[in-house]
Design a protein around this nucleic acid. Structure first.
Lengths: 361, 361
DNA sequence: CCTGTGGCCGTAACCGGTTACATAAGTGGC
DNA sequence: GCCACTTATGTAACCGGTTACGGCCACAGG
C-alpha cells in the first residue's frame, strides 16, 4: 500500500519533532480492512497518553471533560474496540460465564439458555457454552478448558457419576451447580422434585385413582431419582394401602409406550400413571390410546416438565420454570463473583401443577 | 471478602531486591485453594526457563524428551492451566467462535446449537453465545462486544432489517452468515426455501389439490419471504390456472388458526394449505378440525421445518436438518479462520419432504 | 512570594503467556 | 584441532490493555 493519502492522520509527527517518519505503522482510516486500532493508535491520534485514553474510555473521574470528548471522538473515528484478551489479562476479569451442560436437547435446553442469557447480558456478561456430550469425564475436561477464560461457572450435572467427579475437582472459580446432587459445598439451584411428585400423587388421588404406577427416570439421574423417591414417599404417606409400582425408563417417549404395554401384558391393574417426565407420559398416552383405554376415564396420566407438546396433547403435568432456573443460576453466580453472595446454599424452584385433559375430562 | 491473606498482592517487591527470600510466592500443591499456578511457577519448580515450559507444553519439537516429561509432571502436580487471556493476547487467537442468534426459542435453537457445538468442539473451539433479543441494533452491539474475544462469527439474521445493518458493518473477523439475505459479501449457509416450497406444491398437487392457499411468514423474515416466493413461482409454473391465495402470519400457531377461520368466513374455497412453518400449520389443523373439516379428506395441510410436534400430530412437512446447518456453518467458519476457505459463497441445505397423515390418509 | 492542594495527565510496571534470537553444548568431517 | 551444524535451553521483546505513582500547573491561603 504505497503512500496512501497520509495527510489526515500524520499528526503524531508533532511528538517526534524530526527523525525519519516511523513508517506510519498503523495509520489507515477506520473504513479500511486494516488491523484493528489499539489504544496506542487512539492515544497517538489524540496526542495523549494511553493512560488518559484508558481512563477516559473507562469512565474514570479524573479526566477533563473536553479531553474525554476528544478521546471518545477519536476512538469512534478509528473504530477502536478494546482488546478483550488484553483487558482480561490485566484486570483478571473476563466478563464471561462458562455454562457446562450435559446435552443440548429440546425445549428444556433452549429455555434454560434463554433464562441464562437474559440474566447474563443484563449484567454485561457473555456466555461460553460447553456440552459434555453425556460423557462424564467430559465435564471436568470442559471445565478445565474454560478455566481462565471465564469469571465463573454454571454447571449442570444431573448424572450422579458426573456430580461425583465434580465434587473431587478443585475449583478455582466461583461455581453454581444446577440440578446436581450436591448441595453442600457449592451454591446450587434445583427443582423441588419431591414436592412436584407429591403434588402429582395428591392430584391423582383427588381424581379418584386407587392404583397408581410410576414410570421413573434413569437410575443415574438426579431428577429421576428424586421424583421416584418423592412418589414413593407420597404414596406411603397418602395411600398407605396401595402397593407401590415403579418401572424405570430413559426419559424417552418410547420408554413410556413400552412400559405401558408391559404393564398391560403382565396383567397389572392401574388407573393412574405418574411419569417422571412429559416425554414418557406422552409415550404412555399413545400406548393407552392404541390399546383402546380411555384417558382419563380408565387411566389418568400426569407428566413432569410441561414441555410445549404437553399443551398440545392435553397432558396434565408439573410446570417447571426452566428459564427461571437458568436466570437464578446466573444471578447467584454473579453475586458470588462480585463477592456479595453468602455461604453456599441450595435454592429450590417449585413446580406448579397444570391440569389438562389427561387427568380431568 | 474479609481479610483474605494479603500476601499475594505485593507483586512489586519481586523487582526490588528486598532480600528476605520472596516467601515462595506460590508453592502450594494443586489441592489448595490458592491462586492458580502460572507458567513461571512451573518453570521455577522445574528449574527451567519459562520458554522451555511453554515449548514443552505446546508440543514443540526442540525439547529434550526427558525435560518435557519433567515439565509435564510438574505442571500436573501444580495443577497448571495456561491462562487463556494471556495466550490469546500473544497469539492473537482465542479458539472461540461467536454465535449471534435472533432468539433462543424452541427446538430449532437447541438443534442448531447442538450442531454447532459438535463441530466446534471437534476442532477445539468453544462457543460464545449472544442473543439479539429480536432487536435489530442489538446485533451490531453484540458483535462489537465479541470482537477481540472470538476468532470468528456465525451470525444468523433472518430479519431483513438486521441483515441490512450487518451489511454496513465493517468486519474485522471471519464471518459466516446463516439464513440471512446476503449471499454476496460473506460466506453463508441457508435453507433452500424455494425448493422446499416447490416440493410442497408438487406434493399437494399430486394429492389432487386444486385450490391451494399459502399461509405465509412475516414480511420481514427471509425464510418467510423465500417460501412465499417459492410458493408463487411453483404455482405459476405447475398450476397456472389456479389463483394464488396468500395470507401472512407471524409464524405462530394462533395465526394459522385465525387465518383458516378468516378464509372460511370469507367463503374462500380451498382443498390444500401450505403453511410457511409447522406452528402455523398446526394452528390451521386445529381450526379445521374444530370446524369439522376432514384432514386430509377435504383439505390437505403441509408445513415446514419438521419440529417434533409435527411428528406427533401427523403433519406432513419439509424436514430441515437444522443441526446440519449449524455444523456446516461452524465448519466453514473454521475453514475461513485457518485460511483454507475459498471465495465467499452460499451453501444451501435442501429440505426433505416428510409425508404424514395430514396430506395422505 | 511561598507553599499546600487538587485536577489532569504521562511514565512505566505489570498481567501471563509466545517466540525470535542468542547462547551453550554436543557431533561429525576434514 | 577447528569449524560448521544441530540440539537444547535461556533471555528478553513483545501482545494491548490497566493502574500506581509522580510531575506539572493553576489557584487559594498565609
Amino acid at each position: 500500500m504505497p503512500h496512501c493519502n497520509g495527510s489526515d492522520h500524520t499528526r503524531e509527527s508533532a511528538t517526534h519533532p524530526v527523525t525519519a517518519e516511523p513508517a506510519t505503522h498503523n495509520s489507515q482510516t477506520a473504513s479500511g480492512r486494516s488491523e484493528p486500532a489499539t489504544i496506542r493508535d487512539v492515544a497517538r491520534s489524540a496526542n495523549l497518553s494511553i493512560a488518559s485514553v484508558s481512563r477516559a474510555l473507562n469512565g474514570h473521574a479524573n479526566v477533563n471533560p473536553a479531553t474525554r470528548a476528544r478521546i471518545v471522538a477519536v476512538a469512534a473515528e478509528l473504530g477502536y474496540v478494546p482488546n478483550a484478551a488484553a483487558r482480561s489479562l490485566s484486570t483478571a476479569r473476563t466478563h464471561a460465564i462458562g455454562v457446562v451442560l450435559p446435552d443440548f436437547h429440546g425445549e428444556f435446553f433452549s429455555e434454560l439458555m434463554r433464562g441464562m442469557d437474559r440474566a447474563a447480558s443484563a449484567h454485561g456478561y457473555q456466555l461460553l457454552l460447553s456440552n459434555t456430550h453425556s460423557d462424564n469425564t467430559m465435564a471436568t475436561h470442559a471445565i478445565t478448558a474454560m478455566l481462565g477464560r471465564v469469571d465463573g461457572l454454571v454447571v449442570m450435572a444431573p448424572s450422579f457419576a458426573t456430580a461425583k467427579l465434580l465434587r473431587n475437582m478443585p475449583v478455582r472459580v466461583p461455581m453454581v451447580l444446577a440440578n446436581t446432587g450436591d448441595g453442600t459445598a457449592h451454591h446450587s439451584i434445583r427443582i423441588d422434585n419431591r414436592l412436584g411428585a407429591n403434588s402429582a400423587v395428591v392430584h391423582l388421588l383427588e381424581q379418584g385413582c386407587r392404583r397408581i404406577v410410576h414410570i421413573g427416570g434413569p437410575a443415574d439421574n438426579i431428577d429421576g431419582h428424586e421424583r421416584r423417591e418423592g412418589f414413593a414417599a407420597a404414596m406411603r404417606a397418602l395411600a398407605p394401602t396401595q402397593s407401590i409400582v415403579v418401572r424405570d425408563g430413559e426419559f424417552q417417549d418410547s420408554c413410556g409406550d413400552r412400559i405401558v404395554r408391559e404393564l398391560l401384558d403382565q396383567g397389572i391393574e392401574f388407573d393412574g400413571i405418574f411419569a417422571a417426565n412429559d416425554m414418557m407420559a406422552l409415550g404412555a398416552l399413545h400406548a393407552l390410546r392404541e390399546c383402546g383405554i380411555d384417558v382419563p376415564g380408565e387411566v389418568a396420566v400426569i407428566g413432569f416438565d410441561d414441555i410445549p407438546l404437553a399443551h398440545y396433547l392435553a397432558l396434565t403435568t408439573l410446570r417447571v420454570d426452566v428459564a427461571g432456573v437458568g436466570g437464578r443460576a446466573i444471578d447467584r453466580l454473579i453475586a458470588e463473583i462480585s463477592g456479595t453472595a453468602g455461604l453456599p446454599s441450595t435454592e429450590a424452584i417449585l413446580p406448579e401443577l397444570v391440569i389438562r385433559g389427561s387427568t380431568r375430562s
